[in-house]
C-alpha cells in the first residue's frame, strides 16, 4: 500500500510552501506560455528567457496542488543556466521517472504511460542528476497525480517549441 508519506516528501512540501522562481518576466525578451490540467483546473504560467541556447531565466505563476507547484518549482531551479539540449534531456529523464516514455522526439505530448515500473529507460545522452526532483519519484504510485507532476514540464516543452518555431 502506498502511504501519503511516499507522495508528500518533506522537500516537496518545502517547494510547495516556498516556491522558487515564482513571478513574471518581461515579454519580450521572455516568452510566456500557459499550461492547463483540464481535469482539475490547475494552471501554470511559465516565463522563459533564453540567452542564445541557454536558459537565462525562468519564472512560474499560476495555481495548483502541491505536486504540480513543487514539481514546477524544482524544475525551474533545475533548468536555469542549462542549455536547451540539457533541458530536453532533463524533461525526458523526468518523464521517464514518471513512467512516461516519449513515442516521438519533439512530439506534442504524444506519450505513453507504461505501467508503474518507474525505472529509467537507458538513454544515450549523459544524464544530469535529478537532485531534488528525485523526491517526486513516489508520484508514480499515485497514477492520477502524474498529470500534476508533469504539468510544468509539458508547459516548458511547449515554450521551447514555440520559441523554436518563432525564431
Amino acid at each position: 500500500m502506498s502511504s501519503l508519506e511516499d507522495l508528500y516528501r518533506e522537500i516537496i512540501l518545502d517547494h510547495y510552501r516556498n516556491p522558487r522562481n515564482r513571478g513574471e518576466l518581461e515579454t519580450p525578451p521572455a516568452h510566456r506560455t500557459e499550461g492547463f490540467n483540464p481535469l482539475c483546473g490547475d494552471e501554470i504560467v511559465l516565463f522563459l528567457q533564453l540567452d542564445g541556447e541557454t536558459v537565462a531565466d525562468v519564472k512560474i505563476g499560476g495555481q495548483g496542488c502541491s505536486i504540480s507547484q513543487s514539481s514546477a518549482s524544482m524544475m525551474s531551479a533545475a533548468v536555469k543556466g542549462k542549455s536547451i539540449e540539457e533541458v530536453k534531456g532533463l524533461v525526458t529523464q523526468f518523464k521517464s521517472m514518471m513512467s512516461i516514455h516519449e513515442t516521438e522526439i519533439g512530439g506534442d505530448g504524444s506519450e505513453t504511460e507504461e505501467g508503474l515500473s518507474g525505472q529509467d529507460g537507458s538513454s544515450a545522452t549523459a544524464e544530469l542528476p535529478l537532485g531534488d526532483l528525485e523526491a517526486l519519484r513516489g508520484v508514480v504510485k499515485f497514477p492520477v497525480r502524474i498529470k500534476c507532476a508533469t504539468l510544468g514540464w509539458n508547459t516548458l516543452t511547449q515554450a521551447i517549441d514555440e520559441m523554436a518555431e518563432s525564431a
Partner: peptide, 12 residues
C-alpha cells in the same frame, strides 16, 4: 491546502 491534496488525504 489545494483541493487535490485534500482529496488525496481523504482517499487515505
Amino acid at each position: 491546502v489545494h483541493a487535490h491534496d485534500v482529496s488525496q488525504v481523504l482517499d487515505e
